[in-house]
Simulated assay, not measured.
Amino acid sequence: MRNLFLLIISIIFISCNDDVLPKPKAYLSLTYPEKKYEKLRIERPFSFEILKNTIVINEANNWLKIKYPDLKASIDITYRPVNNNLKELLTEAEKLVFKHTVKAEEIIPKDFVNPKKRVFGSIYEITGNAASHIQFHLTDSTHNFIKGSLYFYAKPNYDSILPAVNYIKEDILHLMETLEWKK
């Protein structure tokens, strides 16, 4: 009886030595279609490549909306000719970016320069629960100016949409790299 009692006590002490650890948080695993690009088919003072499975909506004043229906997102692109007002256009573009500072955790600017194609600009990554998570502007500094903004048609929850933001960010960078001004 004494041996049985010692056995039970030793089993209790041995089994209680392991620390109980919570399971790590799991992340949603999303898969996106393979990327294939095509040249913009709508006539504009500029051209660039867009993802094939997007929907391009032709808007007035050479503006565009590139929709991602499966992601409930769009890239809104505005075009303005430069008429000795480049400083004003740049200031306006930056004001729109920094409107998001109320909800943004961080705004990360990166310059973009392609002297061979005369494309100069910046891209801004906006972290946190802001309305727009990526904004950019591009210009040739003499005739053309483009401003783009990424929007999701959902309440901003940055952690949830981060994979989609990163997916579309690649397309925005591709758009910037393939942009050409028409003469």
Results as ranks from 00 to 15, higher is better:
93 A>K: 06
63 W>T: 08
126 I>K: 00
84 N>M: 08
101 T>K: 15
55 I>T: 11
63 W>A: 14
13 F>K: 01
106 E>W: 01
147 K>T: 04
90 L>Q: 15
11 I>S: 11
127 T>L: 04
58 N>D: 15
46 F>T: 12
144 N>H: 15
64 L>Y: 09
176 M>V: 04
167 Y>S: 01
166 N>P: 03
138 L>F: 03
24 P>W: 05
89 L>C: 12
7 L>C: 07
178 T>N: 05
158 Y>P: 02
19 D>G: 01
20 V>N: 04
162 L>T: 01
22 P>V: 03
22 P>L: 07
19 D>R: 13
87 K>C: 00
29 S>T: 12
84 N>L: 12
3 N>L: 05
40 L>P: 11
94 E>S: 11
160 S>R: 08
166 N>D: 10
168 I>N: 02
19 D>V: 11
125 E>I: 03
76 D>F: 10
10 S>Q: 02
117 K>G: 00
76 D>N: 13
153 Y>A: 02
147 K>P: 00
103 K>F: 11
149 S>I: 04
107 I>Y: 12
108 I>V: 09
137 H>P: 01
58 N>S: 10
78 T>W: 11
32 Y>F: 15
5 F>A: 10
132 S>T: 08
89 L>I: 10
156 P>Q: 05
36 K>G: 00
144 N>Q: 08
155 K>L: 07
45 P>E: 12
95 K>W: 07
144 N>A: 09
110 K>Y: 08
134 I>G: 00
85 N>S: 12
39 K>V: 15
150 L>F: 06
128 G>A: 07
9 I>R: 01
45 P>I: 11
8 I>D: 01
71 L>T: 03
144 N>T: 04
39 K>P: 07
120 F>D: 04
84 N>W: 07
167 Y>P: 03
178 T>Q: 06
54 T>W: 08
82 V>Y: 08
37 Y>E: 01
26 A>S: 11
136 F>M: 02
16 C>D: 08
52 K>F: 06
6 L>N: 11
52 K>C: 10
62 N>A: 14
54 T>C: 14
182 K>M: 07
127 T>V: 01
11 I>T: 10
103 K>T: 06
3 N>T: 03
91 T>Y: 09
98 F>E: 01
13 F>C: 07
39 K>W: 13
31 T>H: 14
83 N>A: 13
51 L>N: 09
156 P>A: 06
50 I>V: 14
57 I>S: 12
130 A>P: 05
72 K>F: 12
177 E>P: 00
38 E>Y: 05
82 V>T: 09
32 Y>N: 04
52 K>R: 15
53 N>P: 02
114 N>V: 06
28 L>S: 13
79 Y>H: 11
160 S>C: 00
60 A>L: 14
75 I>H: 09
80 R>S: 15
183 K>Q: 10
